Amino acid sequence: MEQKYVLITGASGGIGRSIAQKLAADGYSLYLHYNKNEQAIMEMMSELASSNVELIPIQADLSSKDGYRKLAENIFSLDAIVLNSGSSAYGLITDMEEELVEAMVQLHVTSPFLIGKMLLPKLMNKKHASIVAITSIWGQTGASYEVLYSMVKGAQNAFVKALSKELAPSRIRVNGIAPGAISTPMMEEFSPEDLQHLQAEIPMGRMGLPHEIAETTAFLLSEKASYITGQIIGVNGGWYT
């Protein structure tokens, strides 16, 4: 069977790592993008060494203007892209520094757009190809004190919907996953009391787990989702419907 290659941006984070583990188990070879956490990538590659797939680490800062190019120039054969890089930004809109706004837009909006632009010719050479963007519940409904993060995640959702229509004739499917509260290191910024209050707001009464995002990603990349494109799949325990 022909080997399939998937690019995962932000592969060193909690969700990215889980996606990489699931896709490697499914037999995909992986480009593992990271920015600063090289140690996490090396540990994961050691862990996945027995998977009998090719693992290619790529370092690039996607919050900088040339980061997307450094990443894309190291991609060769490609069947799918998982756009997972991201970071949060908490604070009132009046507290947001211009440099932070620019970096957040570059990371979540401009870099994914330009990565897609550069890598689409490789996807178009494939019989079937797919793009999955990991967005956020706040891109669907918005969050006070996270206006900047909500804005860039909302842009990702619009990107998915528009690009899916443009690429459908080329047999490339584009979908998004909008996680709710997922138990990752990002949630460590909250106090135990805040987390307890948060979970009480979620109808299922708990936070999601990274592997639940990974399973949804694997489904959307597979032929089981062959007629699904342009969708934002909420994985949020009923928190937003």
Score class of each variant (00 low, 15 high):
Q3P: 02
Y5T: 04
G10N: 05
S18A: 15
K22S: 13
G27I: 07
N35V: 04
I41C: 10
I41F: 10
L48I: 14
P57E: 13
I58Y: 08
A60W: 09
D61M: 12
K70V: 13
K70D: 12
L71M: 13
I75Y: 11
F76T: 15
I81P: 09
V82L: 12
G86Y: 05
G91Y: 02
T94R: 11
T94D: 09
H108F: 06
F113D: 05
K117I: 01
M118H: 09
P121W: 12
M124G: 11
H128P: 00
H128L: 08
V132A: 12
A133E: 10
W138F: 14
G139E: 08
G142R: 11
E146W: 04
V147L: 13
Y149P: 06
Y149M: 12
V152R: 09
A155N: 04
A155Y: 09
Q156C: 01
S164V: 03
A168S: 14
S170R: 15
A178R: 00
P179L: 00
M186I: 05
H197Y: 07
P203H: 05
M207W: 07
G208Q: 08
H211K: 08
E212Y: 10
I213V: 03
E215W: 00
E215L: 06
I232K: 08
I233L: 15
G237E: 03
